[in-house]
Each structure stands twice: as structure tokens, then as C-alpha cells.
Amino acid sequence: MTDDPMMNALPGSTKQKAGNQLDEQIHLTAVDEFLAWGKENSLFYLLFATACCGIELMQAGGPRYDLDRLGMIPRATPRQSDLMIIAGTITHKMAERVRLIYQQMTEPRWVVSMGSCANSGGPFSKWSYSVLNGIDKYIPVDIYIPGCPPRPEALIDGVYALRERVRRYRTLGVRETVPHIVASADAAFGCHFGKGGSKQPEEPKA
């Protein structure tokens, strides 16, 4: 039995009884679960941002929020990326480039739509001739994160929701296509870690 918590966290691993030297090195699991575990813990994201959401994305990657601890490392090329975070306003002109970059990513690939602009056009939706009202018209989106811009906590909340999805991904099976929307109250106020935060909206008493 190893003391390595990461190895103990292997899904479905059969714990061997101590005493056999060989068994201490062996973990039994399903191939699909093992691959999903690897993918979940190495979600390399594409270095790509188009507006102020990108500043929050950089914050999330910085030392204070530290996306690295989730195994998320920015990659400068779509060929090495698993995850594309659409951080910012997407115009019609840009959307076709975004689709091109998305098509250059290798399967399995995931997309997080970060912020109001990428979700639905945000503040530009009613007055702009050039802004695309939602990137999901061009590429499939897995996770929507509300906010303008979302705080790094909200982004990390979305990343956790995505990790759930990646964990359920089966290489030989079907992937989920129904998008997940991060709860807006949690994401907007950044109090998703632990319940009962001071800014949590109170339930009206009947």
C-alpha cells in the first residue's frame, strides 16, 4: 500500500493487502477510468484571451490562485491544449479564427465560455453591429461561467465543474454534450468554497 495520496485517489483502484512486495507496486483499475483520471489532472489550457476576462484568467494562473495546482498549464499552441477558455468579447471576425483554433486542438477537447460576452454578447448584445452574441454559435461549449468579468474563484469553480465532466468522459464511449452553467450567485460573489458565505443570497422564509 502506497502513501502517495494521488495514487490512492485513483478511481476504482483495488487496495492490496500489505505484505507482498509486488502488490505494493500494482494498482488495478479500468483503462477508461485511468485515462480519464490522467486527463482530469492535466487539463492544459490554451493561452488565448480577447478582453478583460483575460486579465482574470491571468490572475487565476498567477501565484495567488495558481491553476498549476490543478495540473493546468498554459500552452501556447492549440496542438498541445485540451481546454480552450474563451475569455472575452468575440466579434464575428474573431469567431472564425476561434473556430479555426478549436479545430486545430486534438480530441478530446473542451471549451469553457468565460464571462458575459462569450456567453451571450454581454453589454454589447443590443448595441453592437460586430460582436457575436455567444461563442456557442460557432463551437460547442461545455461550461458557461457568468460574470463581467468572473472572478478567478468563479473560473476555478467552472474548472471544477469541467473536471467532473472530464472524469465522466469515456474514451471508448460517448461524451456529454449538454452544457453546464455555473451557478450565478456563487460565481458572481466568489463564495463557492464552503457554504454559508456572507454574500450568499438568503432563502426567503415562507
Binding site: S125, N133, G134
Partner: peptide
């Protein structure tokens, strides 16, 4: 690609 979303 339509410019507006449904309801906008």
C-alpha cells in the same frame, strides 16, 4: 450565423 440570440 445569426447576429442576435433568441429574444434579443
Amino acid at each position: 450565423v445569426p447576429h442576435l440570440r433568441e429574444g434579443q
